[in-house]
Nucleic acid binder design. Sequence first.
DNA 1: ATGAAAGCGCTAACAG
DNA 2: CTGTTAGCGCTTTCAT
Lengths: 330, 330
Amino acid sequence: MATIKDVAKAAGVSLSTASYAINGNRKISEATRAKVLEAAKQLNFQKNGWATDLKRSSTKTIALIVSDMSGPYYSELIRGVQEIAFENGYDLIACSSFGGNESTAIKFLKEKRVDGVIVSAHNLQDEPILESARKGFPIVVLDRHLKSDHIYNVLVDNEQGGYMATELLIKNGCKRIAYISNSSSSYDHKLRYKGYMQALNDYGYKSASNLNVNGKFTIDDGYRATKLLIAQRNLPDAIFYANDEMAVGGMQAFKESGIRVPEEISVIGFDDILLAEYMNPPLTTIRQPKYEVGSLAAHLILQLLDGKSIDHEYMLPTELVVRKSCLLRE
Amino acid sequence: MATIKDVAKAAGVSLSTASYAINGNRKISEATRAKVLEAAKQLNFQKNGWATDLKRSSTKTIALIVSDMSGPYYSELIRGVQEIAFENGYDLIACSSFGGNESTAIKFLKEKRVDGVIVSAHNLQDEPILESARKGFPIVVLDRHLKSDHIYNVLVDNEQGGYMATELLIKNGCKRIAYISNSSSSYDHKLRYKGYMQALNDYGYKSASNLNVNGKFTIDDGYRATKLLIAQRNLPDAIFYANDEMAVGGMQAFKESGIRVPEEISVIGFDDILLAEYMNPPLTTIRQPKYEVGSLAAHLILQLLDGKSIDHEYMLPTELVVRKSCLLRE
DNA sequence: ATGAAAGCGCTAACAG
DNA sequence: CTGTTAGCGCTTTCAT
């Protein structure tokens, strides 16, 4: 691949002249510029942006690390980050933490210099993140609580959400309310569970059943967990799933078994993914302000890059979205 | 931020020794290594991976460019690329072409050196892609036909898909079949349309109506286009939407207007996004082999990077997925 | 086993 | 207006 050196040689000018010409610096004469540009075209020259960044000591790009670039969950979040970054002349690149400590994510945290990083990946441990935080390299973490000088937290009030979900079920007249989650519960899921227990407690109920399956909060995991529950033949009258994807899987399982939602069992999810609205029946759920989380995170990074000093913790509320998957019993 | 230079100084060794120690080269004595590592820890040293890449002339990462990182469409595709890349020790980063010629995408094509690029973004013009193609920098394009020495195409047989969709409708007994798409039709959408017209022709039908809305193939655009069609009060008995998202919007419009799908009107989409299966009624559609496209693209990049010489064009078939949104009329 | 020095591709301060 | 030169942070050959 041709370098700027080759271009300079071909055009018969010095390195710097070539550089100036290519970057449109005005002190180069039209004639020379044309010569250089022509040579560049001939050689099919493309500049190596990382070399530029190296020189400039800034990449003008921020990285977003997600646990699964391909999941339905991240859509809105990404949009939030994207828009803010773009408006401010920053690039956004996303990479996944698929592969754990060997993952691209870790490399971006530790090696590939970007100006800032937003981390939303529960399958990443705390240490690599903590170790990566350093002055001049702002990190915003989204789904966990991490305290460190150079780490900032954007949190969603999962506990409140869990509480609201459970309370709705209770007020609807459900007596036996189960919670289905994942055994390797992440920070936010633990809080949802806490909210669930709190509500139960406040109203003098106790947990009907509390199923933790191994898995990754996917549709499939929800399906399997629910099948298990059905097989045990002692169905509660409502289930609070730790997230929408699991709820979707659950509803599928119920449909297959001829159990009607919400007539026979109420279902509530968490997140409000796109799918939720289109389910049959439409899924009642707790909405996370995903777009807001994303754009806030981007804003914070930008402010930090700007040398501003800001709070270390931000908490955003959740919102109950009532649709048709929960029955009002009398 | 501390550099390796600082570490070397702090440890009282030379630059090269520090580098060797940090990279685990065995010719460094245990004592020195320990000293260096200690200094690195003290200074919170993190190496700059781009500098390494610059030196090594390889980044071991491939970039995936998509038109909308946040859309529901790309999930499977990304997974396909991700898995293959990861298995082969490559990193994957995704960036969006949001912002057109100023976008991060263009920078990755032209400036930020990665080892290879996969492009799936209809909102990017041909030129920047063509201009970026050069020896030793493989580009695989997914949603368009682009001929150039260093560009490789992975295509899905959209025409066949369009044909199958239309044929199903015809065989189901629909007489008046409309096609709803986007005016700025991209390459693959044109082919879908061609398949549609071909089928109509083969069976001696003609197009009932052919609505092109301005927009971006989103749920919302489908909704608006359908509302328009409804307002015109001369509904066809089947609609072939250019993609699932538009079909979803269409079904929403029908529901609001009290028009029953499929009893009063049959609906078919294209892509088979996650949502399709969960619609009410479940959406009949044409499946694109998204995962396969992604993994094939990744494989190609890897082979090219390996110096192998391969075909320039690959065509994958589509598949009809019959669900409940099309009525069998007699 | 360790260090000096060249160089990856680029920019920019300085001199002319 | 153009060229010389130092240097961004790192690896690696070659000497010692």
